[in-house]
C-alpha cells in the first residue's frame, strides 16, 4: 500500500533521513520507533508531503505521491499530531468536520458522521459546540483522533499521538483507540519513542537510528532475533516485560502440555493471549490453571508450564 524507495532528507548539512526504504501492507499497523532525532517524524511527514524528500520516491497504491496534488493527497490521509493541533477558533464539531467540509459533504451527512465519531471516541454530546480549550488534554486528543478519522481515509498517520498525555489518560485513550473498528481496518503509520506503546500497537516495528533503519520486523523478531547489539540493547531495560507481551500462547503451542484432564472444568482463554495477559489472568482470578484451544487441540496452562514453555521457545528461536 505504501512503498518508500531510497528516500533521503537533508536539512542544510544535516541528514535527517538517510536513504531508507520500506513497504507497508494494507491494513498493517506500522510503527516507526526510535529516540529523538532519529528521523522517524521526518519519515512520517514525507508520507503526506508535509516534508518533501531530498531524494527517493514514495508510492501510495503504486502512484508516486509527488505527481499528485499535495492537498488532494493529504485529504485522503488521516493525520494525528502530538499536540492535537486542534483549531482553537473552531468548535469540537467543526474541528472534526474539517476534512468532510473540504470534501463538501452535505450538512446532514457531516452531522451524522461527527456524532458517530464522538460516540465511538467516548466524547459526551455536550461538547459538540464546545471549544477545544474547554476540554481536558485526553478529550482534546480524542477530538484529534476523530478529526483524522472523519473522512474515513484508508491511511492514518500518527505522530506521537499519545505522547503529550499523562500515563493514565494515555492508557485509556490508547485502549479506546485500539478497540475501534477503524483501528483494525486502516493502514496505520505511527511514530513513537515509547517502546511499550510500539509493542502494544504494532504489527511491525521499524527501528530507526541516526536517519537509518536498523531493523524492521514483528515485535517478537526484534526481541528474539536482533540484527545487532543496538537493537538488543535498545529493549534491554524492559526486556522481560516486552518478551511476555510479544509472545502469544499460540507461538508457544508446541511447548505447551496437552490437556488430558477434564478440560471443561477449566476456564478457557484465547490462544492469541500473550504471556503477560495470561499471567495477569492467572494472578487475578486465583486459578491454578486455565485452558486454551487452537484448531481443536486444547492445552492446559499453569504458571510452571507457561514458564517452561517460554524458556523452550527462547531456546529454539
Amino acid at each position: 500500500m505504501i512503498e518508500a524507495k531510497n528516500i533521503t532528507k537533508k536539512f542544510r548539512q544535516q541528514t535527517a533521513v538517510d536513504n531508507i526504504s520500506f513497504n507497508i501492507e494494507e491494513g498493517e499497523n506500522f510503527v516507526l520507533l526510535g529516540t529523538s532525532g532519529c528521523g522517524k517524524t521526518t519519515t512520517l511527514k514525507m508520507l503526506n508531503r508535509l516534508i518533501e524528500p531530498t531524494a527517493g520516491s514514495i508510492y501510495i497504491n503504486q502512484k508516486n505521491i509527488e505527481e499528485q496534488n499535495a492537498e488532494t493527497l493529504r485529504r485522503s490521509i488521516g493525520y494525528v499530531l502530538q499536540n492535537t493541533g486542534l483549531f482553537p477558533h473552531y468548535t469540537v464539531a467543526e474541528n472534526i468536520a474539517v476534512v468532510p467540509n473540504l470534501f463538501k459533504w452535505n450538512k446532514e451527512k457531516i452531522r451524522l458522521r461527527v456524532e458517530e465519531l464522538m460516540r465511538k471516541l467516548h466524547l459526551s454530546k455536550e461538547y459538540y459546540n464546545a471549544y477545544p480549550n474547554e476540554l481536558s488534554g485526553g478529550q482534546q486528543q480524542r477530538v484529534g483522533l476523530a478529526r483524522a478519522l472523519a473522512a474515513d481515509a484508508a491511511i492514518l498517520l500518527m505522530d506521537e499521538p499519545f505522547g503529550a498525555l499523562d500515563p493514565i489518560t494515555r492508557t485509556k485513550v490508547r485502549t479506546d483507540f485500539i478497540n475501534l473498528e477503524e483501528f483494525k481496518k486502516k493502514t496505520i503509520v505511527l511514530v513513537t519513542h515509547d517502546v511499550q506503546e510500539a509493542f502494544e500497537l504494532a504489527d511491525r516495528i521499524c527501528l530507526m537510528d541516526k536517519g537509518k533503519i536498523i531493523q524492521t520486523g514483528t515485535p517478537a523478531e526484534l526481541l528474539f532475533k536482533p540484527v545487532d547489539s543496538f537493537v538488543k540493547t535498545f529493549f534491554d531495560e524492559q526486556r522481560l516485560q516486552l518478551e511476555y507481551k510479544s509472545v502469544t500462547l499460540q507461538m508457544l503451542w508446541q511447548f505447551l502440555k496437552d490437556d488430558h484432564s477434564n478440560t471443561s472444568s477449566l476456564k478457557e482463554i484465547s490462544s492469541q493471549t500473550n504471556i503477560w495477559q495470561a499471567l495477569e489472568y492467572l494472578n487475578t482470578n486465583n486459578d491454578d490453571s486455565v485452558s486454551t484451544k487452537n484448531n481443536n487441540t486444547v492445552k492446559e496452562i499453569n504458571y510452571a508450564s507457561l514458564m517452561h514453555a517460554f524458556n523452550q521457545y527462547k531456546k529454539y528461536n
Partner: peptide
Amino acid sequence: DASVLEAATAMGFS
C-alpha cells in the same frame, strides 16, 4: 501555533 498550522496543512488546506 505551529502545530495548528501543521494540522491545517495536513488536513489538506490550500
